[in-house]
Write a protein that binds this DNA or RNA. Structure first.
Length: 330
DNA sequence: TCTGGGGTCCTAGGACCC
DNA sequence: TCTGGGGTCCTAGGACCC
């Protein structure tokens, strides 16, 4: 049995913890370069601000009403750790899934609803972060329960099969964990629109048409756990540092500068995790929002002679690749 | 006219998640 | 004018090996 604890509008809620004057106001947290909305308070959502919506696309009259903050990831990480500490104290097995979500193993807990309500309240009281809890016999069902809890009530348990049947009959496949918009459209083309319809479709057909990932979602909907709780975070397989340039860049020197900065930062991340990299990749993309211009996305990956987290090695490797490319162009 | 049967590694693209 | 920044897994196809 699983629970999913998820902070509401997490970044926006964090900002409110440190500035209570923001409570009740339509608050938006912006990405790097202050480009897109990456978190919205309930009030900002009500005004129609979308997730990842470019802020310049928000109508002026709406923008005037918003309170806007640039993202402060150090702050969010700090509050995330505080929430996690409370969860670990309450349950023996916890999987931190993202900065604002954790799965809990509820095995051995008799009164799940009471436990969840108490935990939710404690997280809110001790950290200031409002949150919701979803409960289910599989992770996919716990996720769905959480989504429903967000609509009101704060805690939803989908363990009971009658409750579950009623909920899944009206739950769109596209809202399921692991089913995105493309797959939802493909499912709809076959007449599968609700989670209940996916659950009850012939499994062999689902496997052939949609692959093992969706077949697993189907099994989980049926109540058979396929996705295990992972208490220990696996080592990263790649670490990426990338940024959009605010404006057009056609200066090679500026790009080389950015590459050097990113390489240093990537190495810091490696060292913080006690890892070394076996290879280095560099990529760049032209402006995808100007499709009328010629597009290109050069990339190059090389293996290092010896795995490393030394910025000097990365910088030298990056330089060699640039030289290589120039040679190739000649 | 016949044209093996495995296996691994790498890359690119697609789809998804927060 | 301004359009996020991370991650993961799966699949297919090609190169290569014995």
């Amino acid at each position: 049995m699983f629970a999913l604890v998820d902070g509401n509008n997490f970044y926006a809620s964090c900002e409110r913890v440190f500035d209570p004057a923001l409570r009740g106001k339509p608050l938006v947290v912006l990405s790097n370069n202050d480009g897109c909305a990456i978190a919205r308070s309930a009030e900002a959502k009500a005004l129609g601000v979308g997730m990842a919506q470019p802020i310049h696309e928000v109508p002026k009259d709406v923008r005037r009403q918003l309170v806007v903050r640039s993202a402060n990831f150090t702050l969010y990480g700090d509050l995330s750790a505080r929430v996690l500490a409370i969860l670990r104290d309450a349950a023996p097995r916890v999987e931190p899934y993202s900065i604002d979500e954790s799965f809990l193993d509820l095995v051995g807990i008799h009164d799940r609803l009471a436990f969840a309500r108490d935990l939710r309240e404690r997280v809110h009281r001790w950290t200031g972060i409002p949150n919701c809890v979803g409960i289910g016999p599989t992770k996919v069902l716990a996720k769905a329960a959480n989504k429903i809890a967000k609509r009101g009530g704060g805690v939803v348990d989908l363990t009971d099969t009658a409750t579950r049947d009623a909920v899944l009959a009206n739950y769109p496949t596209g809202d399921l964990w692991g089913v995105g918009s493309r797959t939802a459209a493909k499912l709809a083309a076959r007449g599968i629109r609700s989670a209940a319809e996916l659950r009850d479709a012939p499994p062999a057909d689902v496997l052939i048409a949609f692959g093992v990932t969706i077949a697993r979602v189907q099994r989980e909907l049926q109540g058979h756990p396929c996705i295990a709780l992972e208490e220990i975070e696996p080592d990263r397989k790649q670490i990426i540092v990338s940024r959009s340039f605010g404006q057009r860049v056609d200066d090679h020197e500026a790009i080389a500068q950015a590459l050097a900065t990113f390489a240093v930062r990537a190495c810091e991340k490696l060292r913080r995790r006690g890892l070394v990299a076996g290879g280095v990749g560099i990529f760049a993309n032209s402006d995808v929002f100007r499709p009328e211009l010629r597009q290109h996305h050069p990339s190059r990956t090389v293996n290092l002679p010896r795995p490393s987290s030394d910025s000097r090695v990365m910088l030298a490797t990056g330089k060699n690749q640039q030289v290589d490319q120039r040679r190739q162009r000649r």
